[in-house]
Amino acid sequence: MGVILLLLLAAAVGGAACVVWAERGGPRWVRIVASVTLGIASVVRSVQKSGRRNKSNGGSSGDSD
């Protein structure tokens, strides 16, 4: 489990580095990795927002007894 977390951390740090490098005009592969990183971040943000909306509504799915 610890190895998986370390790999995820390395991927996140590497992705962030590629985003910064791409902003400064890095090579094509860096721009691709940066685009993928930003896309994943966008998906994670939207999932978090929908989770917060569900919690603010009481977390129920509309079933009331």
Rank of each mutant, 00 (worst) to 15 (best):
M1T: 08
G2I: 01
G2S: 00
V3Q: 14
V3F: 14
I4H: 08
L5K: 06
L5C: 07
L5N: 07
L5R: 06
L6T: 14
L7P: 02
L8A: 08
L8F: 09
L9I: 09
L9D: 08
L9A: 11
A11P: 03
A11N: 02
A12R: 02
A12G: 06
A12Y: 07
V13M: 01
V13S: 05
G14N: 03
G15L: 01
G15M: 04
G15H: 00
G15R: 04
A17R: 05
A17Y: 07
V20Y: 06
W21R: 10
W21K: 09
A22E: 01
A22Q: 04
E23S: 11
R24W: 08
R24L: 08
R24P: 01
G25A: 00
G26I: 01
G26S: 03
P27N: 08
P27H: 08
P27F: 07
P27T: 07
R28D: 12
R28L: 15
R28G: 10
R28M: 12
R28K: 10
R31N: 11
I32Q: 09
I32K: 07
V33R: 04
S35M: 13
V36A: 09
T37G: 02
G39L: 06
G39T: 06
A41H: 07
S42L: 15
S42M: 12
V43Y: 05
V43N: 02
V43H: 00
V44W: 07
S46D: 13
V47D: 09
Q48V: 12
Q48G: 09
K49D: 15
K49E: 15
K49N: 10
S50R: 10
G51K: 10
G51S: 15
R53W: 14
R53I: 15
R53E: 15
R53H: 13
N54I: 14
N54M: 14
S56Y: 11
N57F: 15
N57M: 15
N57W: 15
G59D: 02
G59H: 02
S60C: 08
S60G: 11
S60P: 02
S60D: 08
S61W: 07
G62D: 02
G62V: 01
G62M: 04
G62N: 01
G62Q: 03
D63E: 15
S64Q: 13
S64A: 12
D65C: 11
